[in-house]
């Protein structure tokens, strides 16, 4: 990727806390158009926290540093505003909403974002045609549209449904938090193909993952290691292989040695 590409997301010295507990402690990350980044790191290192802070979860307070999206400060923006501007979060644990059908939810989401972009909203019939194409992309059965949102979906089905939403909303920045966890081998390939086909030169993807396996299908430009609420190492895709075989401790030791 060339460094002339537009910066989509820029975090520098980002600090955030929840209920007074500091979690992000000076995080730096720059994501440009066309790029794919992977964030790896131990459980509890702050990966989901970072994802939710970017998406604007109200429980987190940003206490320092900067966080910009296309050069605009995100701090003042409500989560729905961020989403309308093109930020998408694929949830590690998608929420179940009984009584609200998946299809109706998808249409409302699509129309909200279309309206914000000045695009055409679709009526239920038009949307039906549109969504069927997207379902094919992810090899999902149309029956999922009539079911309650995520209710009773298997772990893998929920993740697939997240990517279906990404496909519909065409975000500029997609942060996919452990989308690969819970997917079987075939589903992983299908979801990866889906993500690859949505991704282009104008948007960027941040994958949060524990496994190198996903990166065989979605090739990242950068791999970051998160530890203690910071990114402590950045490398290329080979780093993932190294992490897979050696674990994280050496990266942490290396970082500590540098800091000392």
């Amino acid at each position: 990727m060339s460094s002339e590409n537009k910066i989509i997301l820029e975090a520098s010295g980002l600090k955030a806390e929840i209920n007074g507990a500091p979690i992000l402690k000076g995080l730096d990350l720059c994501v440009r158009a066309g790029e794919i980044h992977a964030i790896m790191g131990k459980n509890g290192s702050g990966k989901s926290t970072f994802s939710k802070v970017v998406a604007g979860h109200p429980s987190y307070a940003v206490t320092g540093g900067k966080l910009e999206f296309f050069g605009e400060d995100l701090n003042e923006l409500a989560p729905e505003e961020r989403s309308k501007k093109g930020i998408f979060l694929g949830f590690q644990y998608p929420i179940e909403i009984p009584g609200v059908t998946n299809g109706a939810f998808l249409r409302l989401a699509f129309n909200s974002i279309q309206a914000a972009r000045g695009g055409d909203e679709l009526d239920p019939l038009e949307f039906d045609d549109f969504i069927r194409e997207k379902l094919k992309l992810l090899k999902m059965d149309a029956g999922f549209l009539d079911r309650s949102l995520n209710e009773g979906f298997s772990g893998g089905e929920k993740k697939r449904n997240e990517i279906l939403q990404m496909a519909i909303l065409e975000p500029k920045l997609s942060i996919l938090d452990e989308t690969d966890s819970g997917l079987d081998i075939d589903a992983l390939r299908i979801v990866a193909n889906g993500v690859n086909s949505i991704h282009g030169d104008d948007d960027a993807i941040v994958l949060v993952t524990h496994y190198q396996r996903l990166l065989n299908y979605i090739e990242p430009d950068f791999i970051h290691v998160m530890e203690g609420g910071k990114i402590i190492k950045t490398g290329t895709k080979e780093l993932a292989l190294e992490l897979e075989s050696k674990g994280y401790d050496w990266v942490v030791d290396e970082y500590k040695a540098k800091a000392a």
Partner: peptide
């Protein structure tokens, strides 16, 4: 909060 955040992250405001 979690339910509303899920909707919000898809561009849907809390009232809706």
């Amino acid at each position: 909060e979690e339910q509303l955040f899920y909707f919000a992250s898809r561009g849907i405001d809390p009232e809706e």
